[in-house]
Amino acid sequence: MNGICHRILTIGRNTFLDAVRQKFFNALVILSVALIVSSRFFRQFDFGSGELKFIADFGLGAILLFGSILAVVATAQLFYSEIENRTALTILAKPVHRWEFLAGKFLGVFLLLAVFTALMAGILGIMLYWRESSLMDRYGDQFGGQRLVSYAGLAGFAVLQWLKLGVLCAITLFVSSFSNTNLYSVVVSFFVMIICQLQYIARDSWESIGNPALKGLVWGLSLLFPNFQMFNVGDVMLFPHDATEQLSAGTPWMIGGYGVVYIFVFVGLAVFAFRRREI
């Protein structure tokens, strides 16, 4: 047991190192930081909570966009380069199970995503705090003496985003485990991501489907593809005072659990598909 954890962690750490030493990751981080910081300079004339919301939306959008790109491209690239360079051969020729190899790969990218979301959320938090403080000085009456942004909410939301990106990473790993080219994995994974983002539409129309067979099919598909809409609770978590309805204390935990379940499902599917692959 100890040995298994040790091997998975070693492979994960190596994957992480691989990613961090690539120019792609650094460029993406710089770009996202620039984007988040630049939101400050898009002048909004509705000072007060409106401006803070704008900065938050912009920042969370940047995290989601670049995080998704990172999750898909990094997973596909890091996995594919192992096959391409035959380094997977040297690892699997050691006493390493194939599932340990995949778990290690996943863990490495998951760690990368953790660093990415923490960094971005941290910068966003600093931006918000700084802007909020100076707005409070000038327009104190709008704030009623208390802060509008819930920073604990931001941290919690960042964790949820991280789990969501983790699901995306697991999906990409699954696609990569049977695809033969990098490009194919990237394209298919993005496609799946779009389905996951939009599947709430299918869920909404589910009620109105009459045919039971079709209804069952849509239901099955909506189970297979995780519903990414679940994770869109940023507004409520960041600005609890403005929100019309509050989240119950358990909801974020439930959403997180939902993400974790899908991570296990897709990594499991990846292991299954990779089990007999000829490398």
Partner: peptide, 27 residues
């Protein structure tokens, strides 16, 4: 221990780091 044909390793590691990695994987 196995040496594959035309081997190609993690380019971003130094030789020493690479060997450390494989040693760790092999417990």
């Amino acid at each position: 221990g196995f040496l594959p044909e035309a081997p190609y390793f993690y380019r971003y590691l130094t030789g020493r780091e690479l060997l450390k990695f494989y040693a760790k994987v092999c417990s």
